[in-house]
Simulated scan of single mutants.
Amino acid sequence: MEYVARVPGPPLDRYIDDLYCLTGTPRHRRMDVPPMPSGHLFLNLGDPVVLRDSDPATAPEAMADGWFMGVWTRRFTVEYPSAVRVVGVHFKPWGLSPFIGAPASELRDRWAPVDDLWQRSVDTIRNRVGETDCAATALQALEEELLARLAAPTRSLGLVRYAARHLEAVHGAVPIAALAEATGVSGKHLIDQFRFHVGVTPKRVARIYRFSRLILSVDARRPVDWSALAHRAGYFDQAHFGKEFKAFTGRTPSEFLDLRRRLPAEPDFPPDAGPMPAG
Score class of each variant (00 low, 15 high):
E2Q: 12
Y3S: 00
R6G: 01
P11D: 14
Y15Q: 10
D17F: 12
L19G: 06
L22T: 01
L22Q: 05
L22Y: 05
H28A: 09
M31Y: 11
P35K: 01
S38Q: 08
H40A: 08
P48A: 03
V49G: 04
V50H: 01
V50I: 13
S54M: 04
P56S: 03
T58I: 13
A62W: 11
G66E: 04
G66T: 09
F68S: 05
G70E: 05
W72I: 09
W72V: 11
F76M: 04
Y80R: 00
A83V: 15
V84T: 06
V87L: 10
G88F: 06
H90Q: 12
P93M: 10
W94R: 02
L96I: 11
P98T: 03
I100V: 12
G101T: 07
A102R: 15
S105M: 11
E106S: 13
R110L: 07
P113R: 13
D116Y: 11
L117P: 00
Q119R: 13
V122A: 11
I125G: 03
R126D: 05
V129D: 08
V129Q: 07
V129L: 10
E131N: 14
T132M: 09
D133P: 03
D133S: 13
A135Q: 09
A136L: 13
T137M: 10
A141V: 15
L142D: 00
E143D: 06
E143H: 03
A148T: 06
A148W: 10
L150H: 06
T154C: 06
S156V: 04
L157K: 02
V160A: 06
Y162K: 13
Y162L: 15
R165L: 15
H166Q: 05
H166D: 02
E168R: 15
V174S: 02
I176V: 12
A177P: 04
A177Y: 10
T183M: 15
S186F: 04
G187A: 04
F194W: 11
V198A: 07
V198C: 06
P202Q: 02
P202W: 07
R204A: 12
I208N: 07
Y209D: 01
F211I: 05
S212E: 15
R213W: 15
L214K: 07
S217F: 02
S217L: 03
V218K: 11
V218P: 09
D219V: 08
D219Q: 09
A220K: 00
A220S: 13
R221I: 01
R221F: 02
R221Q: 12
P223C: 14
P223L: 12
P223D: 14
D225Q: 02
W226P: 07
A228F: 11
A228K: 11
L229S: 04
H231P: 00
A233R: 03
A233W: 03
A233C: 10
A233S: 09
A233G: 08
D237F: 13
D237C: 12
F241M: 05
F241N: 02
G242E: 15
K243M: 14
K246P: 00
K246S: 09
S254G: 01
F256S: 03
D258A: 15
E266S: 06
E266P: 00
P267G: 08
P271L: 03
P271Q: 12
P277K: 11
A278W: 07
A278K: 01
